[in-house]
Nucleic acid binder design. Structure first.
Lengths: 203, 203
DNA sequence: CGGGCCTCCTGACAAATGTCATCGCCGGCC
DNA sequence: GGCCGGCGATGACATTTGTCAGGAGGCCCG
């Protein structure tokens, strides 16, 4: 039986290299390509057509989920899985919506990762139980589309005037949206609201 | 010649395990202990007295720099080095002040890391050139001690009243410090000031 | 068709925040 | 000693922000 062809994408060379070395010890897995950024991962995938793509969530250029989305469209036979250090509930949801087959934190062992690659290649799915529990307890975003949009623009601490301009909205409207968003999130001001929404992965 | 005894501290099991496996290939290096958190790293260091401690910057409990500080006091013979994913200029400065012998991003290869461990063990020092350049161009923090402290408390978007209480200061004083800090950083409000200070590693 | 929800807006008011001037106290430095 | 800078505070003021009420239009669904 031919080995599972794996693409490894992570911007941290140390991890990527170490991982490649460890996976090489498994004789049914073959790392055919490595990438250090989102665009590079896409290029590598197109060139090598791996069976499974292991993607880091945070990479320069394009994050793991958007890479997975593109991959799903271009190479439907290539299964994707996400490995991340900071697992936010909302990311998990986005990832699953993008057709990702597995979602695991970097706290898993290499042994476990190898098993996951096999599982995914065999058509299975996997979601870290703890992350799944978080996602369920966090529930769906209570924010409307505009609320989330405005909250995102408020992300870097910009004043209302700037947010209004960038969203092409009136300042009053922006304040209303921010206020209702903060109320829904139980925050006392928009800045903590942004933080909470980020933690839950809703922005 | 006896091998270099290494302590590995990183909260991501995947990386720690992979790293341990790779370093095990070097016959002059011996990983004698692993830790997944700051306190655990300290305990392991006390128990195993390694020659070199490789510390991740962000860990639960206590970050790499504070672990290094304690280690320097308790085990002066144990050389420390920091490996991190997000290298901020200020972190580098703090680390060097804490007696850290080497500071490298996780984008280095395992091979390079092994060399660094040897260098550090031999009494040498190393700082990633790019990080060093950033640190130099970022310059010193223009903030006074209190300004930095108050700015840090403002980090999670707390209202002035809460900051004042936690810093045991008057609300007016807090507002003055935040105002001057924001002015020095060229920010239009404290939230962007916090962001800027974080980017430069001044908080 | 009516009700409910989202999207925008306006206006008004209260609270939080940013800014400035000013003060006293202390410590270091020329 | 005089000067400067940091620390801590107060008070006053303008601005920004949060909150509330309400209105117009649109869309979907029973």
């Amino acid at each position: 039986m031919s080995p599972v062809r794996v693409l490894l994408a992570d911007d941290e060379h140390l991890i990527r290299g170490a991982l490649a070395a460890l996976l090489a010890l498994e004789d049914d897995l073959l790392v055919v390509a490595e990438a250090a950024s989102g665009p590079e991962a896409l290029a590598m995938a197109r060139a090598h057509r791996p069976d499974v793509a292991v993607l880091d969530l945070q990479m320069p250029g394009a994050d793991g989920v958007s890479v997975a989305t593109t991959l799903r469209a271009e190479l439907p036979d290539c299964k994707t899985m996400i490995v991340t250090s900071h697992g936010r509930p909302g990311h998990l949801k986005r990832a699953l919506a993008a057709g990702v087959r597995a979602f695991a934190p970097k706290t898993v062992s290499a042994q476990r990762l190898a098993e996951l690659i096999r599982t995914v290649h065999a058509g299975g799915r996997y979601v870290d139980p703890e992350l799944a529990a978080d996602a369920i307890s966090a529930g769906d975003s209570p924010l409307t589309a505009r609320e989330a949009e405005v909250l995102e623009l408020a992300g870097d601490g910009a004043p209302i005037a700037e947010i209004a301009e960038r969203a092409s909205l009136s300042q009053g409207t922006v304040r209303n949206y921010l206020s209702s968003a903060a109320t829904k999130l139980g925050a006392e001001n928009r800045h903590t609201a942004v933080r909470l929404a980020r933690e839950r992965g809703w922005v």
